[in-house]
Design a protein around this nucleic acid. Sequence first.
DNA 1: TGGACAGAATAAACTGTTTTGCTGCAGCCG
DNA 2: CGGCTGCAGCAAAACAGTTTATTCTGTCCA
Lengths: 350, 350
Amino acid sequence: MARITERAQRGGHSGVSIEDVAAAAGVSTATVSRAVRGLPRVSPATREKILDVAAALGYVASSSASGLATGRTKTMGVLAPFVSRWFFSKAIEGADRELHARQYNLSLFNLGGHGSNRERLFSKTMVYKQIDALLVLCMALTPDELDHLQKIDIPLIVVGGHVEECAYIGIDDYAASSTAVRHLIDLGHRDIALLHGDDETDLNFDVPRVRILAFKEVMAAAGLPVRPEWDEWGDFTLRSGQEAFRRLWERPGPKPTAIFCASDEMAMGVIFEAARAGVRVPEDLSVVGIDDHDFADAMGLTTVRQRPDEQAELATKMLLDELNGVSGAVRSAVAPHKLIVRRTTAAPPS
Amino acid sequence: MARITERAQRGGHSGVSIEDVAAAAGVSTATVSRAVRGLPRVSPATREKILDVAAALGYVASSSASGLATGRTKTMGVLAPFVSRWFFSKAIEGADRELHARQYNLSLFNLGGHGSNRERLFSKTMVYKQIDALLVLCMALTPDELDHLQKIDIPLIVVGGHVEECAYIGIDDYAASSTAVRHLIDLGHRDIALLHGDDETDLNFDVPRVRILAFKEVMAAAGLPVRPEWDEWGDFTLRSGQEAFRRLWERPGPKPTAIFCASDEMAMGVIFEAARAGVRVPEDLSVVGIDDHDFADAMGLTTVRQRPDEQAELATKMLLDELNGVSGAVRSAVAPHKLIVRRTTAAPPS
DNA sequence: TGGACAGAATAAACTGTTTTGCTGCAGCCG
DNA sequence: CGGCTGCAGCAAAACAGTTTATTCTGTCCA
């Protein structure tokens, strides 16, 4: 037991080092290093020999050692508040595509919950010197965390949400929301409810706010009233969509003929719950969302499409370019969105 | 200040090293190392002083350096064929919970596609010496990849699928499938279709096979026929469920009164498509799935619940215990499952 | 025939930690 | 008062690479 521990702790025999390769090939470690990394100043004959020996010995460079020597870990961090929600899992997939193509690793930091519900705290210690760059996914960050973030001196970019003084990539939320609301108005709806996302609980997270603002301004521009009792709150989940519908329909008084939902998941919750309540979509109620979730097509949900995977992929590309010396590669960019009209929106009942 | 400049000019990386702390506190690096890690042989007074200095300087140990010295990276790898599908994203979340609690990092390796559709290859180089342990999520692995896996000499466990000679954690697929099928039979169904998952394209991936086997044996035991024309194929996605339903209903001849689907996503595809085709669920067609997907409750889907997050969490716990010297901590275990009866199953039309 | 020059290869320094002997030093007992 | 114990703390040797300054070949040309 003692021996096993000792060996494991010291790294022991478990692995072929660059010196083993150098000795076997009859060259110095410096030459092996150059050869395996494809650098110049190694003759073709020597290079070939070294590569053969390395392959035969199954040599793989220790990432810790080269990380220590170069100051680069070849790893990018991804900071996300969730991983199993549509936007985030898609974004992670997109980031991974680019990282994989460039031989980088992906280190996932899941903060689990956002805003005041945050279970875990992001701190400098978590990522400091462990990653070369950081991709932040649509996070609500506390001032404290933001402060930590600034202190880490690495390329950083935010996807899907606006964080003070950081480059960010995402759709034009105002335009996307306006498009969705205008679609409802164009169909003839006048009584439109709003199912918006988080608001008060989140700091520095203005995606929900922008979507709310767009709704109100478009409504006002069309001369339509915004009724406070039709302003429902949700947290972007299916369940919160269901609950919002229930609250809306339980309340006495007139009912809206359409709902603009700040996310597809919430829109789907509304649709499922409407079905249970015998409210027909779109005959009695039109529903429009934002995202183009994987299930949107199957459900016939009218929505505004965005592609988080492409956004994250682009962001990752920028970060890696920056690391490769392309200074100024990291910069804000607006991702495209598109209204997809399906079967959950129609003219209001006459 | 002078020191910082000097370091920068020498090509030193930005950041405070253990030596800076040692110098500032007037002790040796060895003592700093012990102090910050909470090891004994440091007097309380010295420890406090060192911690103060370290905090003031914003010292964070370089993971590369300590990784090199200890042979441990404090990082666990997670190998997954997808990240945005329900099972995988939940499992990743579960693994992360445990890792985070134990101060470990999570490195994500997404192989994108499985079996013959595999876009990327898993090789030793990817993870060798970068991670202390590896969690494999429900992967179909090629013999080649399996070979690489064996060569990496680290604790390893598989979640949600059986891989030769590896410890694995997952539900009893045979029992889970049997339960679902028996539920349909108990309701009075005799004409039951099967929507199974991948089969021929996947190597070493017998979850689908076991589910098929369970279906056939339970049907046989009940004296019911298994019709080959009602044996449909899918790849666990929503879309494949939709397509399977369409194929089933386009084909001339009698229709089944129930479908057993090997995953909830496929079951939902069937339900959506049935709705479009005017087939009522459960009046005309009962549908049962496996998983208890996030959407299952809202859709009223009868299913067999499993918790990939808990499975992955347990697996991660085992791996970390093993790393902490608890030899034999990694071992196979059967995760619980439970039939959840909701509104997509009912007695067949008389 | 000697010197400049280019390319290939090397020795040695360097990255930042951990860990192992080893040295002081204080307290205690005989 | 000398020897024994034990605790704090230190110097130095790993760990496995990368990088710089240098040496060693030859070759070409004056």
